[in-house]
Amino acid sequence: MADLSAVRADSLVKNFGDFRAVDGIDLHVRQGEIFGVLGPNGAGKTTMLRMLATLLPIDGGHAEIFGVDVRREPHRIRQLVGVTGQYASVDEDLTARENLWLFARLQGLTGTRAKTIAVELLERFGLQEAADRPLSQFSGGMRRRLDLASSLITRPPLIFLDEPTTGLDPRTRGQMWDTIRELVTDGSTILLTTQYLDEADQLADRVAVIDRGRKVAEDTPDALKTQVGDSTLQLNLADGSDTVLAANVVRRLLGEEPVLTPESGRMNIPLPDPNRAADVLIGLREAGLGISSVSVAKPTLDEVFLALTGHGADDEPQMEAAR
């Protein structure tokens, strides 16, 4: 049982007309881990998740969840997976308590059991005071919590979280992160998608980076970050024609390859250690190269992308994954 993988997908494919939203993605999620799928809007994250959750037919490839074939046994898969979508999939016309009751009854819990589990979940997610209020009065964070609570009624061993914190304020996001970590201590496995490197870094044991329907990297968050450096030194040279000279200085001092952005004179330099920023600045002054602005930033998804694919995360805005 120990080597039973939570998710094993081989060369998954999804086409929407001529557009190939998911183009041969392999995925292997181990039991008990938080696996992050990182990528910009339209990369195919949601589409992939929806295929694994039986919400979209799989056009090509093979997928298994705890050894059960997704295509052949959708009804079993639905008993194994709890899905929390990007947009809260709860009933807007019912109260929070009625929502939980409904989803519990639909999954075969008795009337009394459905009532007690609704109370337990409302309490666990801090919604007991709002339990009987209409959902129209709920904040975005409350809706997400209710949505997640609805996915946990039968304690599924695998939980899909599609961008669980997109659009939440920082405090609510922190709470959501705590809740997600707790789920793993209960024994659940989590597959989450996110646009934020920060979030993947905070939560995920391993991360797959998806771009234009393909997997471009898969590793631990730490390993991914070392590929782009822990932080980035961004500077604008006073004279754009100095770029090549400046790049040489950087290579000599840090042994790193600076990323030259299209606007002339702009350089992004991966920094293994933020303290090395001073070395670069001193080196440039010694070489007589003027700087018009300078800043040190933590790596963003955009830089991970730039480093992994050679193009930015939003170079080519593609169609939002069809829902």
Binding site: R78, V83, G85, D91, Q107
Partner: peptide, 9 residues
């Protein structure tokens, strides 16, 4: 949105 959940159950 809730029909998404019905389908996933």
């Amino acid at each position: 949105g809730v029909f998404d959940r019905f389908k996933s159950l």
